[in-house]
């Protein structure tokens, strides 16, 4: 075992996470105070808040994968999605609310990758909560300057003649990448194809899985 001599590591080989027993921060106190006041004054209830947290947790990249798989198998939907992704996905039951959605299609010549340099804008209704790295300063600052290096670090090396299009999600739009459909899947159903569509492939930091993988 490579980690045998390090007693600050758990049996799994990973470091123990420090206990979260520091005093509450200002904003933690503020959140608790506002939440308790809203409940006390009857504006909302603890059940409503828990239901909203459950609803947020229930949104996963499987939603986005269903959209991508349908775009791969239903040409009319693909056209509608590229034309107006908010409406096309809403009709599938994925309402993006007041935001608007743009679908970015990868082709043999173009690879799209999404970042929000200003904060962490992300199509949560299709992909769930963003991964920590998506919110990191490193990803946000480097993706607009050296996207090919970022892609290589994610294991994606593109041919020189592929155009990389970086999309900085700066305002009211949200973005989902439609990855390139893997070869050898011509007779696959949308359900089966959905299993090939990873979260990262819809951010643009990955590709769809290959049928054999």
């Amino acid at each position: 075992m490579p980690h045998d001599h390090h007693d600050h590591l758990s049996p799994s080989g990973h470091p123990y996470r420090p206990d979260d027993d520091h005093p509450l921060t200002y904003w933690q106190q503020m959140e608790i105070a506002v939440r308790e006041l809203l409940i006390e004054k009857g504006v909302t209830t603890a059940q409503d808040i828990n239901a909203q947290i459950d609803a947020m947790d229930a949104r996963t990249p499987a939603n986005g994968a269903a959209v991508v798989a349908r775009a791969w198998t239903d040409p009319a939907f693909r056209t509608a999605l590229l034309e107006d992704a908010s409406t096309a996905t809403r009709e599938m039951g994925f309402d993006i609310g007041p935001m608007r959605l743009i679908a970015l299609e990868n082709t043999a010549d173009v690879h799209n990758i999404v970042v929000c340099t200003l904060c962490s804008c992300y199509p949560r209704n299709l992909l769930g909560l963003p991964p920590d790295w998506y919110k990191s300063r490193a990803y946000r600052s480097r993706t607009v300057k050296e996207p090919r290096k970022i892609l290589a670090e994610f294991g994606v090396t593109l041919p020189e003649n592929t155009t990389v299009r970086v999309h900085d999600s700066t305002a009211d739009m949200r973005y989902i990448v439609i990855p390139h459909r893997p070869a050898g899947t011509d007779d696959w159903t949308a359900d089966a194809l959905g299993a090939l569509v990873t979260r990262d492939s819809m951010i643009g930091t990955g590709l769809a899985k290959l049928p054999s993988a």
């Binding site: 300057k145 900085d168 700066t170």
Partner: peptide
Amino acid sequence: WGNAADGHQDTIDAEI
């Protein structure tokens, strides 16, 4: 990014 650019033909889209 000028000459420091990673791939000169690559692009950045942003909403302004």
